[in-house]
Amino acid sequence: MDVKYINPFINATINTMETMMGLSIEPKPPYTKDKLQTQGDISGVIGFAEKNVSGSVVLSFPEETALKLYAALTGDKVFQITRDVEDSIGELTNIVAGGAKTVLAAQGLTFNISIPSVIVGKNHTINTKIDSPIIVIPFQFDRLRFVMEVTMKVDL
């Protein structure tokens, strides 16, 4: 997968966290994933498709990170993952995917994105039918971490 397709997702994540929450997050070196299990307790998933483009983006958070982001977004402090926290992770994933979609469209790669799905649970897995490597980009802010997983198949 060409790095030019990954960078818009990384930049959209940094921009979303900075703009909506004033958080300065740092991307760590990416790697490819060889198993279905995610690293988080809650994941937002968005698929994208067009006749020559298919893929998905996942934002996966440990519970502590998700609760901190929810508090930063809404001003509410909660102590466990609630429906509202799930909604916030779905919306963050939606904003990141939308931001990347806009940048890629300007480069001539257009596709539609799905509405976000949110999966909750320790050691949950997310299966993908896309025959393309899954690139994992870890992010860190303060002492908290989360990961983004992107897979994209482009037939030009």
Partner: peptide, 24 residues
Amino acid sequence: TEGAKEEVIQALKEGVNDYIVKPF
């Protein structure tokens, strides 16, 4: 989140007075 130029134009044509792209 729909930030492409064509989408902004479409929304303005339908009668939107202004447009904000998330994140904001």
